[in-house]
Write a protein that binds this DNA or RNA. Structure first.
Lengths: 220, 220
DNA sequence: AGGTCAAAGTGAACGGTGTTCACAAAATGA
DNA sequence: TCATTTTGTGAACACCGTTCACTTTGACCT
């Protein structure tokens, strides 16, 4: 185990692998999974289609790498926002709005990260596997935020942390998906009382935190 | 225009068309758009693949019919719920929860109804085209509900109707998509403070209406 | 240096897809 | 009965992901 520096062979391999990923990323960002084909990547990097299988075991495998790395970037950005020193309420809103802003910067990535996950692999090892995903980690920062809000007295104390976090995640996810699928979603800018897309995102985030915040006398 | 009754030729045509759609529907519900192929439909109804093109101009055309008719059924169910005579607050919650219940009964349909809409057709005639869609109509019942809530004094009066409706739609849509993509989404049932999927849907709907309801003194 | 051996890269093929087109069969209308 | 339109077909085209036997390459060891 003395070879901590990488050999030229490995470097070359990593370079080719990187070229494949770069080409794939470029096509994927513009045209989504539909427009991405092994043969097209091969063309773009001047290799034969079969060569790609020396680096990735399948197209799904390759695309999974793209998705994970995208979610990693999204996670990083949300972390940046949430670590800022700011009043909790503003931070919560900014965190949610930031999530959908990053998400819709690469609509194809965001959508693909959620589609095509259905019913495969082994079932039992769910919890642990999910936490090791960037998606899982992104969810856990949300959980932390909700937890902070409850313990800090900003949110209603009777709320269950993890269920609330999941509900919030669903609401945010919904807006991101809407915009990803219908690129001009709110489409309200030129109407009476119209909003730009950015304004609408803030509006949505505001409604979400409002649903969690304490209110004076609503004793059930 | 005296031929209001249909000729046997047309009836035969409709019967074949129906058989195609039935076969497609069956496969689509079980395996989604991925498992559906023209050749497979052709096999199932004992026709040649090319024959299908005498009834539908493309696979997308065929699938669009499936999607629209699914959204029609969804729309019908939501209408049923919303027309019930019930206190507004309960009706609003039930309407939202009903939407996601129907949506996740056919996850493939619901997901497909939103994916693959990006950037085609002519751009200008947006508004009118959308209103003629079952998706558009489903949105308009939501708008009506929000409008009723505001005018009835249940919701905060400063809320803008259409933006609020869109935000609510996004939140509901988000939960539906989550469950459609991650079939055991809340996955909370066996945890402390766990909820079944049905309970979670109600919880989510409750949070959404709470974000709209009047609260005593939150003067900005 | 020469020889060995694993890795990298290739071309051709397999089975699959949506779609088209010239053609045959059948139903329609006169 | 004949002409015309509609319905159905089989073969092909161009693409797809993937595999496999094969050659080329490059690194390592004597």
């Amino acid at each position: 185990m003395q070879d901590s520096e990488i050999s030229p062979a490995e470097r070359r391999r990593l370079r080719v692998r990187g070229a494949i990923l770069d080409a794939a990323e470029k096509v994927f960002a513009e045209e989504g999974e539909a427009g991405l084909s092994i043969r097209r990547i091969a063309d773009e990097i001047d290799y034969s289609p079969a060569a790609i299988y020396k680096y990735f075991s399948s197209k799904d495998d390759l695309v999974d790498v793209l998705k994970e790395s995208f979610f990693g970037r999204l996670l990083g950005t949300v972390h940046e926002i949430i670590d800022r020193r700011e009043p909790f309420s503003a931070r919560a809103r900014r965190c949610m709005a930031g999530y959908v802003r990053i998400a819709i910067e690469k609509p194809h990535h965001y959508v693909a990260a959620f589609t095509g996950v259905r019913a495969d692999d082994e079932a039992p090892s769910d919890a642990q596997a999910f936490d090791d995903t960037n998606k899982g980690r992104a969810f856990s920062v949300l959980t932390d935020m909700v937890s902070e809000g409850i313990e800090g007295g900003h949110f209603r104390p009777e709320l269950d942390t993890v269920n609330t976090a999941k509900s919030v995640w669903a609401s945010i996810h919904g807006l991101a998906m809407m915009i990803a699928h219908l690129p001009d979603f709110p489409a309200t800018a030129s109407m009476p009382g119209g909003m730009s897309q950015a304004e609408f995102i803030d509006f949505h985030a505001d409604l979400i935190v409002r649903s969690l915040e304490k209110q004076s006398g609503v004793a059930a």
